[in-house]
């Protein structure tokens, strides 16, 4: 009992304390968070744009958006990332993190665009008409009626899309970025005790995912209290 406890503390020390390894892990967490947050931010902006095109009445916009969304949603984000890194940006020295943000923004953007579209489609059109009859302009009615209701409908799916995005950022090690996964992996390789380091990595990912969950629930409570 005593010896196993000792082994764990030793392992903890070797993996995270020795040689300031925790700093490496923290840096990895920072990169993962940076990729997730900016991927989500730009992804949502792109998604809004894609969704607008996709729902447009102009056929050419609609079809183009449809094809782009289908391709992006149907291909692995890692391949998209590698194509951007090794093919498109191969000849200039663009920062790998910047390229990764583009890849994740595009990928999550296409998913979120579809989430938006289905949520907007699920809103009761009759309520929109009722608002128009009360004198709301088209855009005012959209912001007062359609958007809040669509937001409510989209929320659970949007939340899981964010968690998915966080987890998919773990592949950026392929393009030389030292994110959380890559840093715990290299620590494990160095100490020859990968179990502890990798397990610790999972705990951090879990923590990030549940932070998202917590943010959403408190946000919801605030909205309800309003």
């Amino acid at each position: 009992m005593n010896s196993s406890l000792h082994a764990i503390t030793q392992s903890f020390y070797d993996n995270l304390i020795a040689g300031d390894a925790y700093l490496i892990v923290l840096k990895g967490v920072w990169i993962t968070v940076l990729l997730s947050v900016s991927g989500l931010l730009f992804g949502t902006i792109i998604a809004g744009f894609f969704c607008f095109l996709r729902m447009s009445k102009i056929k050419i916009f609609k079809i183009t958006a449809r094809i782009i969304i289908a391709v992006l949603r149907g291909s692995p984000v890692l391949l998209l990332l590698m194509i951007l890194y090794y093919v498109i940006f191969a000849n200039n020295r663009t920062d790998a993190v910047f390229i990764a943000v583009i890849a994740f923004a595009l990928n999550s953007g296409s998913h979120i665009a579809e989430i938006m579209r289905s949520a907007l489609g699920a809103v009761d059109k009759n309520q929109l008409e009722a608002a128009r009859m009360l004198g709301f302009s088209r855009s005012k009615a959209f912001f007062a009626i359609t958007l809040p209701q669509a937001g409510k409908i989209a929320k659970p799916v949007f939340q899981s899309a964010i968690v998915n995005l966080i987890q998919w950022t773990s592949v950026v090690g392929y393009v030389t970025i030292n994110d959380l996964t890559r840093s715990v992996n290299s620590i494990g390789a160095r100490t020859g005790d990968p179990f502890f380091a990798l397990f610790f990595g999972i705990l951090i990912y879990l923590g990030l995912s549940y932070t998202v969950y917590a943010l959403f629930t408190t946000g919801e409570r605030r909205l309800e209290a309003k």
Partner: peptide
């Protein structure tokens, strides 16, 4: 028309209250 519709009220069979 937004101005015109302000002077008109419509009540529907299905009520169509704002559910949120």
């Amino acid at each position: 028309l937004n101005q015109v519709r302000q002077k008109m009220g419509m009540v529907y069979q299905g009520f169509h209250l704002f559910s949120h």
